[in-house]
């Protein structure tokens, strides 16, 4: 069932320079992806900050329900 990660390990042998280049690229990819994810998290938090009710404590305290069902 392994869908990810299976292929990279099965590369044929190659010179060490190629490997180094690949590794650098790979780590850049990871770095880029992490930055993108961080940016994504920042942007969603910014969006949510804009819509959150203003006085959190009072708002939460005021949400009182009766049992149902």
């Amino acid at each position: 069932m392994a869908k990810d990660g299976g292929q990279q390990h099965k590369q044929p042998k190659r010179s060490s320079t190629e490997e180094e280049v690949e590794q650098v690229e790979a780590s850049e990819d990871v770095q880029e992806r992490k930055e993108r994810l961080d940016e994504d998290v920042d942007s969603i938090l910014d969006e949510i900050d804009e819509v959150l009710e203003e006085n959190a404590e009072e708002f939460v305290r005021g949400f009182v329900q009766k049992g149902g069902e």
Binding site: V60, F63, G67
Partner: peptide, 15 residues
């Protein structure tokens, strides 16, 4: 709200 509790002891259902 489509939730099930007020977090103060009350719960209401979704069946």
């Amino acid at each position: 709200y489509k939730n099930n509790t007020d977090n103060k002891g009350a719960s209401y259902g979704s069946h």
